[in-house]
Design a protein around this nucleic acid. Structure first.
Lengths: 349, 349
DNA sequence: TTGAAAGCGCTAACAT
DNA sequence: ATGTTAGCGCTTTCAA
């Protein structure tokens, strides 16, 4: 059974006027007699007329919907960013179509093809951790599809980007660990090719450097799948546990990695922060009620989503090709909790 | 700048044939010369032709997209259910448009209007906690839009439904608390009008009854906004703390309520489970690393999402009106952790 | 085996 | 002030 709506034609027939009169009346055109307008409006309301957006889309060659590609909505940063995206999009009459890569490059490719073939007007992208090659994005961009990257961005494509100040967030968190007496700080992070990985790594390294702590490459562990594959984070962690001297703190570069490290530490009975401190990027609401409460770097996810969307809609609705691209950067916030505070008694200094 | 795709017309011009020939060749029609077919296919590939789904939609009067209405995607149950929904929908070439009510009836109304006007083919709905009146759904259903309710359902509309066995989950959790020596078990739950609230309440009451524990109405606190408004849960909690005798356990009937109670108990320094045990419905991955680890009733969210979608697509693609409606019910799982286990020393029995 | 033409719902240029 | 018509991309009779 098909749901069939009232069309402009039905109204025209009902009223004995032409479809164009109805169309113009509904759009409140100046060239329509006020009385006719009123008559049409009333009839439309009475018959519960709803314009068919598909016909409109076909005509205007746009669908008033935008796509969003993220790694997974269960990620606390992305679910909040999506709230921001939806709020900005709906305000301006746009639909949002969400798709998840689960950090997989293959999925990213197929999703991109899927979305492109669904006539979306533009795309918000946060790149999967597995992805190294940007050609699939470049091809679409070259064909004129408006693109805005957020959070995990690429330099390869010349368009708007929205990011958190990952360097700052990472620098602050690492400095905080150092300030609490930790010296052998490991860094568990996403795949090397990701923009956020590189920036966070830089912040981490700079903090070590500024405090005259030598950086050791083996203290940095990359998770090619962003902790999406459980064994991967386990391996990274095992690698760290084989190091001598043992790290005394872990700074994690992503939502799943932060909570993942917490789970592993807990499951192995390693005391936090006595034996190993933990801090990391996360937007989880539960950070303060875990055991121990987690020190986290929070990104303004909602605002970032909103801004990315506004920039995308600007691109979509711009009459002329946009030449100037913005790089918006948002400050992060460090929320300090017990997981990274060295207890007074065991302080080594 | 507009992204403009290759059309069937471009192919026809390129090859010097008619658009109908191209169309038929692409659809592999029997009445087209194999050589022509091959030629068209090659040209389509070469020019990177992608059929315009909007034109198709207009023609077929369907959009190959379904809407999903949930309270919020940051909810651990819904984010996983949505994964299931997307997996089933994408498999069959459907788009998913997600919208969030934030538990607000008003938002539910406007979202419904928005989605209905965007020519979706069907709708998956989990009702907002504020909603009491089902007329907005009934009106759409009456107009022939396929609807499937999941998780928070209504009896008022005759269609497929997908739920967890809320009674069972609630019964088991409450019985578990009783088995651990708790007798004064409070229940913090969603708005009274919600289906899940009623079923979970029944399970809770039945468990009390089966163990000869008198039910006290004041031990049940309803949150009309599902804990979405912070003060609401605070109030509910305060009400419980004024009771004498004081409850010795809380059983929470929803994701946000469970973690919300944890936060409140923690912030007030009330020891869990010594002073107050806690258990509740939640699909959070962090339940086992909170302090204390939480006893939770888990729903098979992914499977529920998949099933709801399959039922909806069945409805959408059915040639004749569907008369027989299914009520799918999924078993829940009780994961016991420390938050509900009475320590041996303080055991009263 | 192929082409011409109509039509899905809507808008807008062009009549009148 | 209103009507006629063409066209957005595609499929599908109907003709040839």
């Amino acid at each position: 059974m098909r749901y069939s709506a009232v069309t402009i034609k039905d109204l025209a027939r009902e009223l004995g006027v032409s479809t164009s009169t109805v169309s113009r009346a509904l759009r409140d055109s100046y060239e329509i007699n006020p009385e006719t307008k009123k008559m049409v409006m009333e009839c439309a309301k009475r018959m519960n007329y709803q314009p068919n957006p598909i016909a409109l889309s076909l005509k205007e060659r746009k669908s008033r919907s935008i796509g969003v590609i993220v790694s997974e909505i269960a990620n606390s940063f992305f679910s909040k960013a999506i709230n921001g995206i939806e709020s900005a999009a709906h305000e301006r009459g746009y639909n949002v179509i969400i798709a998840q890569t689960q950090e997989s490059y293959r999925k990213e490719l197929s999703i991109l093809e899927f979305l492109a073939s669904r006539s979306i007007d533009g795309l918000l992208i946060s790149i999967a951790t597995e992805t190294r090659n940007m050609e699939h994005f470049a091809a679409l961009h070259a064909r004129g599809l408006p693109l805005v990257f957020f959070d995990r961005i690429t330099e390869d494509i010349n368009t708007h980007t929205v990011v958190a100040d990952n360097f700052q967030g990472s620098y602050e968190a690492t400095s905080h660990l150092i300030g609490n007496g930790y010296r052998r700080i490991a860094h568990v992070t996403n795949s090397k090719n990701l923009s956020i990985t590189q920036e966070r790594l830089k912040g981490y390294r700079q903090a070590l450097k500024d405090h005259q702590i030598p950086a050791d490459k083996s203290y940095v562990q990359y998770c090619h799948h962003g902790g999406m594959i459980h064994s991967e984070l386990e391996n990274a962690f095992n690698n760290l546990m084989e190091l001598r001297p043992l790290p005394d703190a872990i700074f994690a570069g992503g939502d799943k990695l932060t909570t993942g490290c917490l789970k592993i530490l807990r499951s192995r009975g390693i005391k936090i922060p006595e034996e190993m401190a933990l801090a990391g990027f996360s937007n989880s609401d539960l950070a303060e009620v875990t055991e121990p409460p987690l020190t986290v770097v929070k990104q303004p996810a909602f605002e970032m989503g909103r801004t990315a969307t506004e920039l995308l809609l600007e691109l979509i609705e711009s009459k002329r090709p946009v030449e100037e691209f913005e790089k918006r950067k948002f400050a992060t916030r460090l929320l300090v909790h017990r997981s990274s505070i060295r207890p007074a008694l065991t302080s080594i200094g």
